[in-house]
Computed example of a mutant assay.
Amino acid sequence: MDTLYHQKRPLMSDEGLAAAVEAVAVDEYGDIRNGHVAAERALTLYLDKQELVTLMTLGTRPEMLVLGWLRNQRLVEDIEQIKAIQVDWETDSVAITTYQGVQGLKEKMARKTVTTGCGQGTVFGDLMDDLDKIELPRRSIRQSEIYRLLHTLNEHNQVYQRAGAVHGCALCSEEQIHLFIEDVGRHNAVDAIAGHMWLEGTDGSDKLFYTTGRLTSEMVIKVAQMGIPILLSRSGITQMGLELAKKVGVTLIARAKGRHFLVYNGAEQISFDAVPEVRPRSTGSRHASQSKSR
């Protein structure tokens, strides 16, 4: 069964806001243009009345964002520890209440790593904590499946198409998109999806995660913590992102756009069933089968 509901779910507000707001600009001809810009709002998190951090967000899924942030920061181990998450846009804050407090909160917050996430994401505690405990399943994927997903995902970038200035992330399986979220930073979008998965008890072992942003160490760690074995991006990767993907077993597919992609880790999990007929000329490329035989 893919989804198991928790017996004790947090009491949560429902305070999602519009992702884009109207704005007026003047174009290169001096003409006035009416359009939209991506919203950006500050949301300060308070855990049991203690201030934690201020996140910059579109504000479309604030409760899921907060829930996923708590999980990915490893501040709360069990969702049933959380009593309530209440967002208040009049004060630009969210009150998180637990039943018995969070053990070692000061120590966890004392250690932090500023990541390469948009707007400089921050990971509290040791970035590499518990990575050795993660065991991801091996999941194969067809090349044709990647192409169909990319085509479908292009239709979901609603805020980007309307206002730009956002990143999108999606939870997928085979050719189905279960959840697509856009935010001002990719780390916010992945946290919101993580929050939704945590709340609903969604299994990530048969899923694929897509992001428009680059594949950094933070992105690989978060996807691994969500139990998702395949990470797909239209952007590039970082060295540490690649090293961690190899360490935890995440299949890493980057520069995925149109019919082009680069598999940096886990190529043996890809079934090349839709190889393009015309190969672009390149002096630095060769078949994976050729490189193995040399």
Rank of each mutant, 00 (worst) to 15 (best):
I230Y: 02
R74C: 11
E218Q: 04
Y29N: 12
S13W: 01
E155W: 05
N265L: 03
T57L: 07
L252Y: 13
S289N: 09
I82H: 00
C169E: 04
L262D: 14
S289L: 04
K112L: 12
R286F: 02
L52I: 15
E51R: 13
L47V: 09
K292R: 14
G236C: 07
D48I: 05
Y147F: 08
Q120H: 15
M109K: 07
T283G: 13
A194E: 02
I96N: 00
A39N: 12
F272I: 08
L55R: 04
S217Y: 04
I134Q: 09
G104V: 05
V275G: 12
Q143T: 09
C172F: 03
S271Q: 15
Y160G: 12
Q269V: 07
C169G: 06
V26I: 09
V114E: 15
G249H: 07
G104I: 01
D273T: 09
A25T: 09
V275Q: 13
L52Y: 06
G30V: 02
S217M: 09
S293R: 13
V123M: 03
I141Y: 01
K83V: 03
H6A: 12
A19D: 10
V24A: 08
L232F: 08
E175F: 04
K108Y: 04
E15Q: 13
H196Y: 14
S289R: 08
V184Q: 11
R255Y: 11
A110P: 07
S235Q: 11
L252I: 00
A256I: 01
R162S: 15
R148C: 10
G201P: 03
L199P: 00
A19E: 04
S144M: 06
T60Q: 13
E135I: 07
V184K: 01
L131G: 05
R279N: 10
I134R: 02
I134F: 14
H287F: 12
G121D: 13
G266A: 10
Q161L: 10
G59T: 09
G236K: 08
G16C: 04
V220I: 08
V53N: 13
M219D: 05
W198F: 07
A20V: 01
V26C: 09
Y99Q: 10
K108G: 02
C118V: 14
Y5M: 15
G227Y: 03
S217C: 07
E90V: 10
Y29D: 15
I79W: 00
V102C: 05
K133E: 15
A254K: 01
A170R: 00
D132T: 08
P276K: 11
D78I: 08
R41E: 09
A39Q: 06
A194D: 03
D31F: 13
V248S: 06
E174L: 03
D48P: 07
R294C: 15
L58S: 01
Q50M: 14
E268I: 01
T44E: 10
D78M: 14
V190G: 01
S217D: 12
H196W: 12
L153V: 04
S93P: 01
L58V: 08
V190K: 00
H178I: 05
E218K: 03
L65W: 09
Y160M: 11
M1A: 13
N72F: 02
M219L: 11
L150N: 02
I96R: 00
R139N: 14
